[in-house]
Simulated assay, not measured.
Amino acid sequence: MIRYSLRCEKAHEFEGWFSGSADFDDQQQRGLIGCQVCGSVQVSKMLMAPSVSTAREKEATRTLALDTAQKQAFAKIRETLATIRANAEDVGDKFPEEARKIHYGEAEERGIIGQASAQEARALIEEGIEVAPLPVLPDDVN
């Protein structure tokens, strides 16, 4: 995983975690990276100083672990995500179109999951269509 410091076109700064540079580029090209403040998808990486750690710091990082409460919380999140996925139809990149059809009664009402850009999700919400992002947990990408 790599952490990038990001800035939107309106100078709001935030950070994002990606599996690599290609993952950032792909998500940016697909409009999936948006500013949490203004929603802009015009996002760029900021200059960052490299993180250099000593052997002692590396050892400390390797021994860090989740406490019992955190492990239980992640287990509940994973269980909830599994339930959502098991009870929803994956419509892939047709998500915005299918969500609208369901909302306007043009398709049968059912749970769906899929992909939508930040702009598409914002447009759905503005239309009164209830959508929510599904989290990607650390184990899902490592």
Rank of each mutant, 00 (worst) to 15 (best):
59 E>W: 07
1 M>G: 08
22 A>H: 06
31 G>V: 04
116 A>S: 07
78 R>D: 13
99 A>F: 04
47 L>S: 15
4 Y>F: 15
13 E>S: 12
64 L>S: 08
62 R>K: 12
37 V>D: 12
50 P>V: 08
133 P>G: 08
18 F>K: 04
28 Q>E: 07
9 E>A: 13
66 L>N: 11
73 A>M: 12
37 V>F: 09
19 S>T: 14
39 G>N: 07
133 P>R: 10
51 S>C: 09
126 E>N: 13
33 I>R: 01
21 S>W: 05
28 Q>F: 00
69 A>V: 11
81 L>V: 04
53 S>P: 00
53 S>Y: 14
84 I>M: 05
50 P>T: 09
40 S>E: 06
16 G>A: 06
95 F>R: 02
66 L>T: 07
66 L>D: 13
58 K>W: 07
141 V>L: 13
121 A>P: 02
15 E>T: 14
2 I>R: 13
88 A>E: 02
63 T>F: 07
61 T>K: 05
83 T>G: 08
59 E>P: 00
7 R>K: 14
47 L>G: 09
108 E>M: 03
73 A>T: 13
28 Q>C: 07
129 I>M: 10
125 I>K: 14
68 T>Q: 13
137 L>K: 05
15 E>W: 09
68 T>K: 12
12 H>M: 06
120 E>W: 01
34 G>I: 04
112 I>Q: 04
100 R>D: 02
72 Q>M: 11
41 V>E: 04
128 G>K: 10
6 L>M: 10
95 F>I: 03
46 M>N: 11
43 V>N: 03
2 I>W: 05
96 P>L: 04
8 C>Y: 01
42 Q>V: 11
98 E>F: 03
49 A>D: 15
80 T>K: 12
79 E>I: 02
91 V>T: 05
58 K>T: 09
134 L>H: 06
95 F>N: 00
35 C>M: 09
10 K>F: 11
